[in-house]
Computed example of a mutant assay.
Amino acid sequence: MPASPASALSRRHLLLAGAVGLTSLTTLGALAPARAEEVWSEEFLTRPETREGFLVDDMDEWQIENARFLIAVIKGHELDEQAGVITLATAIVESWLRNYEPAVDLDSGGLFQQRPSMGWGTAGEVRHKKRAVDAFLGLGAHSEAPGLLDLAPDYREWAPGRAAQAVQISAHPERYAAQVPAARALWDRHAGDVAPYTD
């Protein structure tokens, strides 16, 4: 992973490193203290992240921040845990919770590997984390592709993996269900102390 710019070493980053570090989610459980309100900067929303790999028990700072941001957006839309699990499982499968640049598959990019050529927005928009989440949910005005709430408005009645596949139309639909336990672990670990994000 490339070194973070000096401007990224904020008090929030130091808190993440100190309170969470690279310790196992299982070990930490619900023991981490509540955090101060997080500020999601434009640099955070658009920075390049290119290292592959995802391990739920060995997530680094950027993966943790991305998971927390997805949860913040879900809560900002007043959606529930099921929507959060579907969204997190999808991002784990598609990007290992990394905001990919450059594209790793044709013109795919970002947390959800959305393709501008398939109507998900511009190359910049699919890598803008808030716009990417909104598009996945079907709440992004910039996106022409149908999202979760378009395709599965009754998503609470769907198996999470099936709901993710309805949006992503993957050649490997079984992969989403396989990451549901990891997604639930992330929701359980972080949802209680992440404030809704609505900007």
Rank of each mutant, 00 (worst) to 15 (best):
A103H: 06
T46M: 06
S41C: 10
I71G: 02
K129I: 01
L111V: 13
G138Q: 04
E49M: 04
H77S: 05
F112P: 05
E65R: 14
N99H: 03
K75P: 00
V93C: 10
R115G: 02
R127G: 01
R68I: 07
T122W: 12
I74F: 00
R51T: 15
A103E: 02
A123S: 12
G119Y: 08
T87H: 09
I92E: 06
T50M: 06
G84Q: 03
R47M: 14
N66G: 04
K130M: 07
I86L: 07
T90P: 05
E101G: 01
I64Y: 01
S95P: 08
A123D: 11
E43W: 11
K130D: 06
F112D: 08
R127I: 04
E94G: 10
R47V: 11
F44I: 01
V73T: 05
Q114P: 03
A132K: 05
L79A: 03
Q82T: 15
G109P: 06
I86E: 07
F54A: 08
L97M: 15
V104F: 10
Q113T: 12
V85I: 15
R68E: 12
F54R: 08
L45D: 02
E65L: 13
A103V: 00
K130E: 09
T50V: 08
D60W: 10
D58P: 03
R98I: 13
V56Y: 09
L45G: 03
K130T: 13
I71E: 03
Q82L: 09
V73R: 13
G110I: 11
D134L: 15
A123W: 02
V56Q: 14
V93A: 10
